[in-house]
Amino acid sequence: MNPDMTPDLITPALRERLARSCTLLNREPLRDYDTGDARALLARADILFTGWGAARVDAKALAIAARLRLIAHAGSAVKPAAAPEVWQAGIAVTAAAIANAVPVAEYALAMILLANKRTFPVRERFRTERKLWQPQWLAPGEPGNYGAIVGIVGASRIGRRLLALLKPFDLTVLVCDPYLSDEEARALSVEKVTLTELMARSDVVSLHAPSLPETAGMIGRTQLATMRDGATLINTARGALVDHAALTQELVSGRLDAVLDVTEPEPLPPDSPLFGLPNVVLTPHIAGAAGYETRRMAELLADEIERFVAGKPLLHAVTAEMLARVA
Rank of each mutant, 00 (worst) to 15 (best):
A13Y: 05
I47G: 07
R161Q: 13
F275Q: 11
A302Q: 05
A83Q: 02
A290E: 12
L25T: 07
R27S: 14
E129N: 02
V122S: 04
D170P: 00
L113R: 02
F308Y: 08
P273A: 12
P29R: 09
F126H: 06
L24S: 10
L48V: 07
A115N: 06
R44G: 05
D261M: 08
R255L: 01
S272L: 11
A327C: 12
A99L: 07
L188H: 06
L241Q: 13
E304P: 04
A54W: 05
R325L: 01
T119I: 04
A209G: 11
K167I: 01
D182Q: 13
K79P: 01
N100F: 08
L41T: 13
E191N: 04
F126R: 05
A258K: 03
L109G: 11
A246L: 11
L166T: 12
P103T: 07
I91F: 02
S189I: 01
M111W: 08
P12E: 06
E16P: 01
L300T: 01
L323N: 08
R118N: 10
V318W: 02
G90P: 00
R228I: 10
E293G: 10
G230P: 11
R15I: 13
E250Q: 15
E299C: 02
D8M: 12
R295G: 03
I158N: 04
F49I: 13
E28Q: 15
M199Q: 08
N100C: 07
A74S: 14
F308G: 08
A110I: 04
